[in-house]
Design a protein around this nucleic acid. Sequence first.
DNA 1: CCATACTATGCGGATAGGCGAATAGATCTG
DNA 2: CAGATCTATTCGCCTATCCGCATAGTATGG
Lengths: 120, 120
Amino acid sequence: MTESAVLTSTAPADACSHTGTVARFFRALADPTRLRLLEFILRGERTSADCIEHAGISQPRVSVHLSCLIDCGYVTARRDGKKLHYSVGDPRVTELVVLARALAADNAAALDCCPRIGQD
Amino acid sequence: MTESAVLTSTAPADACSHTGTVARFFRALADPTRLRLLEFILRGERTSADCIEHAGISQPRVSVHLSCLIDCGYVTARRDGKKLHYSVGDPRVTELVVLARALAADNAAALDCCPRIGQD
DNA sequence: CCATACTATGCGGATAGGCGAATAGATCTG
DNA sequence: CAGATCTATTCGCCTATCCGCATAGTATGG
């Protein structure tokens, strides 16, 4: 994607996605680094530099993770001068994360021991 | 785990999980087969045989997926005679899936094209 | 108790996806 | 335009995790 690229993806709002699509949606949050980034951006608009510092990984890696979060609809980007600013527009994203955190917290012990899912 | 194994994991309900735990929680739903199984069980209590037929994979694989869903707190198991019956107890699981489906649907086009997440 | 039916685990192979490093591309400022 | 700066892509490597097949373990019911 080039030019004044579509910063915020304007998808046509389908009625209902098939399971594979939803699984892919969840997969975006299945990586600790990406989830950490999302929660960071959730607490306020951030620049790439903010994200790079917060994530503690290389700029190219952060770029990929942010692209992924954008494609999946969690985050939108806005250009201000030379820099891009990332934020979460849809309040349902917060709902989703809060709900998941609550559920995960209620079962943290078993979750951390699940041998079917590797330790991070 | 042996004996009259802990069918429903009785975790001690922590206040807040660290990011890695929540990511692991999401990872359980990041696999299409597991998500499909969860949504199947969500629509009513199921036996292993039901799940094997519905998922279309081998019994050992289904066993692993169900164990994963149980460990992560999505599903509970109940023994009735020789068979185990699987169901979803916590209504927040339904909330989570519905919310994710809505968000995924609103961005299905971009989601399905995200090159950072492989096609299923 | 023992046989049977149900459920879980181990193994090897294949693929997805994360990482750093190097590089390419795009956009703003002057 | 041109240089500087910010962002994205490519590459090779490595680990995680999926699968089927074979096998082991457990609980029930006689």
